[in-house]
Computed example of a mutant assay.
Amino acid sequence: MRQKIIGILLVLALSAAVSASATELDARLLVFRVSEPGAEPYISRVIVSDDFLRLDQGASSPGFILLDRQAGVIYSVNPDDRLVLVFRAEAGGSEAPAQAQLEMRQLELADAPTVAGVQPQEWQISVAGQLCERGLVAPGLMPEARAALQEYQRLLARQQLATLASIPPEFQEPCDLLLNIQRPGLLLQKGLPLQQWSPAGHRQELLDFRRQFPVNRELFVLPESFRRLEMGSPSGGAAEAG
């Protein structure tokens, strides 16, 4: 396992030095490989500008998720249905349930090479004695991209909180509550995640990152011809966006 970690870190250190001159807009890039139980691994690409965050599965991916960072609105674009789902964080609303005992513990990590001059750290997140997640992070690396991802995860947490009342308490998992509603983005607070894994089988590893990534501004534009559907709380349902 340690040899695999070292190999990944060396690749990242080399790719971090690659940059290109800006064309229309200079952004920041993160590329992850994500694995879920029972599914083929897939690529998750994150492109961040000062005003937007875009999530897709690579340059050839027709669908994407767009966060308007200024408005605090998430758009999910589905080309097959020619539909854009619109998620707005509700003001006020329900409060998150009381948080169980959280423990974040830094683990000993010896002989790991630096990434772009940064020494990685390994962290373990537990709640009420139950292991929720472990992750290898690079403190201080890619702060602008991390900030955008934290904004995105906080907005998702508010959306999920709005639906929590429809889930019976016996089906509410402490780790899910902690990571997805109560304290989203815990590992991002410690640094850029290089690897993440959970007992449930979720794995994510960083394949590439660029501090400068020239992109076309059209990547942050929603298709005008697509129908828009506002997604509200469970009681409010969905409504056509004007």
Score class of each variant (00 low, 15 high):
Leu188Gly: 08
Asp51Gln: 13
Ile43Glu: 15
Ala241Gln: 12
Ala110Asn: 13
Gly191Arg: 00
Arg146Ser: 03
Glu218Ser: 15
Val77Tyr: 08
Met142Cys: 08
Arg211Tyr: 04
Leu194Tyr: 00
Arg45Glu: 01
Ala128His: 06
Glu108Trp: 10
Arg154Trp: 09
Ala20Val: 08
Pro120Cys: 01
Lys190Leu: 13
Asp208Ala: 12
Arg54Ala: 06
Leu14Asn: 08
Val48Ser: 01
Leu85Arg: 07
Pro41Glu: 14
Glu122Gln: 13
Pro120Lys: 00
Leu219Tyr: 06
Ile43Phe: 05
Gln212Asn: 02
Pro113Asp: 10
Glu224Trp: 06
Val18Phe: 15
Ile181Cys: 00
Glu36Gly: 07
Arg211Lys: 14
Leu109Met: 07
Gln160Asn: 14
Ser19Tyr: 04
Leu194Asp: 00
Asn78Tyr: 12
Pro62Ser: 08
Pro168Arg: 02
Ser166Leu: 10
Arg158Gln: 09
Leu67Asn: 01
Pro234Glu: 00
Ala71Thr: 05
Phe52Val: 04
Leu179Glu: 08
Val137Tyr: 02
Ile167Thr: 15
Arg134Tyr: 08
Gly237Ser: 07
Ser35His: 08
Pro214Asn: 07
Lys190Trp: 10
Pro139Ser: 03
Leu187Lys: 01
Leu186Glu: 07
Gln57Tyr: 09
Val127Arg: 00
Ser198Met: 12
Leu14Thr: 11
Leu206Tyr: 03
Lys190Glu: 15
Thr23Ser: 15
Leu188Thr: 09
Leu9Pro: 02
Leu25Asp: 07
Leu107Met: 12
Val221Asp: 10
Asp26Tyr: 02
Ala239Leu: 11
Gly92Asn: 05
Arg28Glu: 13
Asp176Met: 09
Gln172Ala: 11
Gly129Pro: 04
Thr114Asn: 06
Pro184Thr: 01
Pro143Ala: 04
Ala116Cys: 09
Ser235Gly: 14
Leu109Asn: 02
Glu90Tyr: 06
Ala27Gln: 05
Phe52Lys: 06
Leu29Ala: 03
Gln150Arg: 14
Ser61Trp: 03
His202Ala: 11
Gln106Ile: 06
Ala39Tyr: 10
Asn180Thr: 10
Ser235Ile: 13
Ile65Arg: 15
Glu90Ile: 04
Gln119Pro: 05
Ala20Ser: 10
